[in-house]
Design a protein around this nucleic acid. Structure first.
Lengths: 130, 130
DNA sequence: TTGTTAATTGTTATAATATAACATCATGTA
DNA sequence: TACATGATGTTATATTATAACAATTAACAA
């Protein structure tokens, strides 16, 4: 069997839901929402989430245990994510900053570690909440 | 009452434990280890952890739900953390890179957000695991 | 030194997040 | 066909974290 090109039924249902939200969704809130579509168990949700994260269609906001759709058309940046998070209204935005990405991509520590991924989360107050 | 200068009993016990480990510890493994010292409930651990994070004595590794001591003598950087994480052996190291810190500190998005904190986690393979 | 206040503690219960284990089904390829 | 792989469905359970409430302790001011 080849690497899946198309998404499976559950993966589609869950990606749809996440893409319709501009804010991160939590696994159990997703579960609640997709019960009407016949997805009944946490594991079904987590499996789809794992896959979607793996192929870069969604990202996990680690500090919030929540999942947000990747807006980048080609989803090449699944392994290099930057988010800003408002600590008041919890609004989350994915950041694409060329210069910042360059710095992060080029970062080398002095321990000879080989990086293949990073995740950066900025916290603060958004315009509305300042 | 003024802001605590000194740590409370539970906070000390738990900080001691975390400082003795050079790797991140999980809350329930901490709980297990401090039961002999009379700390019996998860909440007692989480409350101490919250406080220690707040004052910058420890950091939470968000992607691992684990806590590591801050090695920085003055712990001024509780709000600006960078870690490297080996995905094979799970070794975690706190990174202090002046240039990188500058870039992150100076980062401005185009949405007028005011940042007061960030957390960056690099993933990859350490020297031993490559 | 005593009353006030805030921080901390202790305890029970429960919420929220995530995975193990196993059986079955679907699909592409030898 | 039959084999391998990926996805599904299901039950149970593991892991991480907080709610709610009562009691105690520590700093400070009157």
């Amino acid at each position: 069997m080849q690497k899946q090109e198309t998404l499976s039924k559950n993966q589609k249902i869950i990606l749809d839901l996440i893409e319709k939200s501009d804010q991160p969704l939590k696994a159990y809130s997703i579960l609640f929402d997709v019960k009407k579509k016949g997805i009944n168990a946490p594991l079904q949700v987590y499996r789809a989430l794992d896959k979607l994260v793996e192929i870069g269609k969604i990202h996990k906001i680690e500090s919030r245990n929540a999942f947000i759709a990747c807006k980048n058309s080609k989803c090449q940046i699944a392994k290099a994510t930057v988010f800003s998070i408002c600590e008041s209204c919890e609004d989350v935005t994915e950041i694409h900053d060329h210069k910042l990405s360059e710095h992060l991509r080029d970062f080398k520590d002095n321990k000879g570690m080989k990086y293949n991924k990073y995740n950066l989360e900025f916290f603060g107050l958004c315009k509305k909440c300042i």
